[in-house]
Amino acid sequence: MTRDVKESFSAGAPPAPAALAAKVRTLAPSMTRSMQLVAEAVAGDPAGCAALTVTGLAELTGTSEATVVRTARLLGYPGYRDLRLALAGLAAQQQSGRAPAVTADITVDDPIADVVAKLAYDEQQTLADTAAALDTVQLGAVVAAAAAARRIDIYGVGASALVGMDLVQKLSRIGLVAQAHSDPHLAVTHAVQLRAGDVAIAITHSGSTWDAIEPLRVAFDRGATTVAITGRPDGPVSQYADHLLTTSTARESELRPAAMSSRTSQLLVVDCLFIGVAQRTYETAAPALSASYEALAHRHSPRTTR
Results as ranks from 00 to 15, higher is better:
residue 58 A to I: 07
residue 176 L to S: 04
residue 283 E to Q: 13
residue 261 S to A: 00
residue 246 T to C: 09
residue 263 R to G: 05
residue 135 D to S: 04
residue 198 D to I: 01
residue 235 G to A: 09
residue 273 L to S: 02
residue 295 A to Q: 10
residue 141 A to P: 03
residue 85 L to Y: 04
residue 56 G to W: 04
residue 95 Q to Y: 00
residue 171 L to E: 10
residue 109 D to T: 14
residue 125 Q to H: 11
residue 281 T to V: 13
residue 104 A to G: 06
residue 214 E to N: 09
residue 205 H to T: 09
residue 278 A to G: 03
residue 2 T to I: 11
residue 107 T to Q: 07
residue 122 D to L: 11
residue 78 P to D: 13
residue 293 Y to V: 02
residue 94 Q to W: 01
residue 32 T to S: 14
residue 220 F to R: 14
residue 178 A to G: 09
residue 270 V to F: 01
residue 36 Q to H: 10
residue 15 P to D: 12
residue 71 T to Y: 15
residue 113 A to M: 01
residue 69 V to D: 15
residue 172 S to G: 14
residue 8 S to G: 05
residue 177 V to C: 02
residue 206 S to G: 06
residue 118 K to D: 08
residue 110 D to T: 10
residue 119 L to V: 15
residue 66 A to M: 11
residue 182 S to I: 03
residue 287 P to N: 12
residue 10 S to P: 00
residue 68 V to R: 08
residue 246 T to V: 13
residue 280 R to I: 14
residue 202 A to Y: 10
residue 231 G to R: 00
residue 37 L to T: 11
residue 64 S to W: 00
residue 46 P to W: 02
residue 188 V to M: 13
residue 110 D to L: 03
residue 133 A to G: 08
residue 150 R to L: 00
residue 265 S to Y: 02
residue 55 T to Q: 09
residue 288 A to Y: 06
residue 281 T to D: 07
residue 55 T to H: 03
residue 110 D to F: 07
residue 76 G to I: 03
residue 25 R to Y: 06
residue 290 S to L: 12
residue 189 T to Y: 08
residue 52 L to K: 04
residue 146 A to G: 01
residue 121 Y to F: 13
residue 15 P to V: 09
residue 286 A to H: 01
residue 201 I to R: 00
residue 244 L to W: 12
residue 180 A to P: 00
residue 256 R to H: 04
residue 277 V to H: 01
residue 155 Y to A: 03
residue 290 S to M: 13
residue 109 D to L: 05
residue 98 R to W: 01
residue 146 A to F: 06
residue 108 V to L: 10
residue 219 A to P: 15
residue 255 L to D: 06
residue 45 D to P: 06
residue 191 A to K: 07
residue 58 A to G: 06
residue 79 G to C: 08
residue 262 S to E: 03
residue 24 V to A: 12
residue 197 G to S: 11
residue 226 T to M: 02
residue 38 V to W: 11
residue 234 D to P: 00
residue 228 A to C: 05
residue 89 G to R: 01
residue 217 R to H: 11
residue 144 A to P: 02
residue 273 L to F: 12
residue 144 A to N: 05
residue 294 E to C: 13
residue 228 A to Y: 10
residue 30 S to K: 02
residue 84 R to D: 10
residue 140 G to V: 12
residue 301 S to N: 13
residue 16 A to K: 05
residue 129 D to S: 04
residue 172 S to A: 15
residue 280 R to L: 15
residue 287 P to L: 07
residue 54 V to P: 09
residue 138 Q to A: 15
residue 133 A to W: 11
residue 275 I to A: 03
residue 209 T to M: 03
residue 8 S to R: 10
residue 108 V to P: 01
residue 80 Y to V: 10
residue 95 Q to F: 01
residue 35 M to L: 12
residue 156 G to F: 10
residue 54 V to E: 14
residue 197 G to F: 05
residue 170 K to H: 08
residue 176 L to K: 10
residue 74 L to R: 15
residue 264 T to M: 09
residue 22 A to P: 09
residue 66 A to H: 07
residue 31 M to F: 15
residue 113 A to I: 09
residue 215 P to C: 09
residue 60 L to H: 15
residue 186 L to E: 05
residue 299 R to I: 12
residue 105 D to M: 06
residue 174 I to W: 11
residue 203 I to G: 00
residue 230 T to W: 03
residue 280 R to Y: 13
residue 49 C to K: 07
residue 73 R to H: 15
residue 156 G to Q: 02
residue 119 L to I: 12
residue 166 D to P: 00
residue 161 A to L: 04
residue 92 A to L: 05
